[in-house]
Design a binder for these strands. Structure first.
Lengths: 239, 239
DNA sequence: CGTTCCTTTGAACATAGTCAATAAACGTGG
DNA sequence: CCACGTTTATTGACTATGTTCAAAGGAACG
């Protein structure tokens, strides 16, 4: 209980910063997260490290890097279902013999650590996991609407805003600036487009003064205008 | 414990039939479900009975009727996120103050009852709920791939197969036959198309001998051929 | 039996995809 | 640090899938 607990705002580990932002964590919960992060595992980039249908062993937390849930069709078409960013959980299941609901692909090198099992004395940890799960579901629903009802330009704006918002929670984005280590082809597989059309859509955003993108660094210079373009959907999963 | 428990296969209440199919339920679990179903609540058709962002009070089970999660954009565009069919759960949340992640719209008249809280002695009930949740997530992921990477014809086939499979679990479909009380406009909002294009896609399926659809009654006369058209994705959420 | 909602059809149009070629960026070994 | 091979980004011309608009035909329902 007498763990040295730095205030949330100065938390230096992005994953812990995110989980603290989702629900107030007691010092002991933060201490257990710190301890868990001392036993990291690294996944090589461009590798699938979880395969759809395989048994799931333990819940883990992303500490750094970008991963994504993907589904690949027989003919090679690929859909990125959602992204896993620092502080996101994977392999959380309530059933007895869970299997992975989708494959997970490491876009960059990805570092994970075990997710401490919530205990009675872990003020807020279980709540943080629950809010994290609800948030993931929210993003998944948003992805459905994005693909079903928005055009290419709107999809790109909506998705960039979502990524910005998510990275900001972990302290990895601020003022519309963040790094995004994705190829246009991966973005295409996320937004249900072709890479050629993603390229043209990015150009349109640039010429509208809404985006700067150079060597994986994104700058959204006019967040207000972007917000005006999309549905105002703040992530609020608790009452 | 000595409840009169008919074998699962002859279970007459579709919702209980589905939950029994997801995980083996003890007689006492079935008894509690039966008891809960004796306190039904009816939602009028064409009504939104859960609103996105509103607090969620209790978990409920759909006993009969069709409902759907929807998201409506400011300009009126609408996306159906997924359907709620007999045996499906709604309002299940692990957090302390959950809010609805999407609005729920009653397509037909919908009857629900409270979902009994799993207890230690409810063999299989918690497991059934967990598998149900995993299955819902599976369908949501499938919906993302459908919208992102399939064309209109493929979307329709994939979705019809999914509905058939889900209704079959509850004993409400068999041999490719089931009733589907949806307008083409609702199907369009589900598949990210216009109702005009849905109409044309249905015609294409009919002229290919894959579909009969008259006054809400669907017949898929050649399930094998349909399965050949889509990804073979049996729902297997447990190892 | 008229009204309303739903389905069906046609013609013109728009958004996004395909194919192909070039340019730029990146990574690697010498 | 440079040369080379590979991946990624960019551009153009053409095509295709799905949308829009409008109107007419059916079915359901009071």
């Amino acid at each position: 209980m007498s763990t040295s607990a730095a205030p949330t705002l100065f938390e230096s580990i992005p994953a812990i910063r995110r989980l603290s932002a989702l629900a107030a964590l007691s010092p002991s919960a933060v201490a257990r997260l710190r301890a868990a992060s001392a036993a990291p595992r690294t996944m090589r980039q461009r590798r699938e490290f979880v395969t759809e249908g395989e048994p799931v062993h333990e819940a883990r937390i992303v500490l750094s890097g970008w991963a994504c849930h993907t589904h690949v069709l027989r003919d090679g078409r690929r859909q990125v279902l959602d992204f896993l960013l620092p502080g996101d959980l994977l392999g959380v299941c309530a059933q007895s013999n869970p299997v992975a609901s989708a494959s997970i692909f490491a876009v960059t090198e990805v570092v994970t650590c075990p997710a401490p099992l919530p205990r009675a004395d872990d003020g807020g940890l279980a709540e943080s996991y629950a809010v994290s799960a609800a948030t993931s579901e929210h993003y998944l629903l948003r992805q459905v609407t994005r693909l079903g009802r928005l055009n290419a330009y709107e999809r790109m704006v909506d998705w960039l805003m979502e990524i910005h918002e998510r990275l900001a929670l972990a302290g990895l984005a601020d003022g519309g600036q963040f790094s995004m280590p994705l190829t246009q082809e991966l973005i295409a597989d996320t937004l249900g487009l072709t890479s050629v059309h993603v390229n043209r859509t990015l150009q349109a955003l640039r010429s509208d003064g809404l985006l700067t993108l150079r060597s994986g660094q994104v700058l959204l210079p006019d967040l207000c205008r972007l917000e005006g373009l999309i549905e105002n959907r703040p992530v609020r999963v608790t009452g």
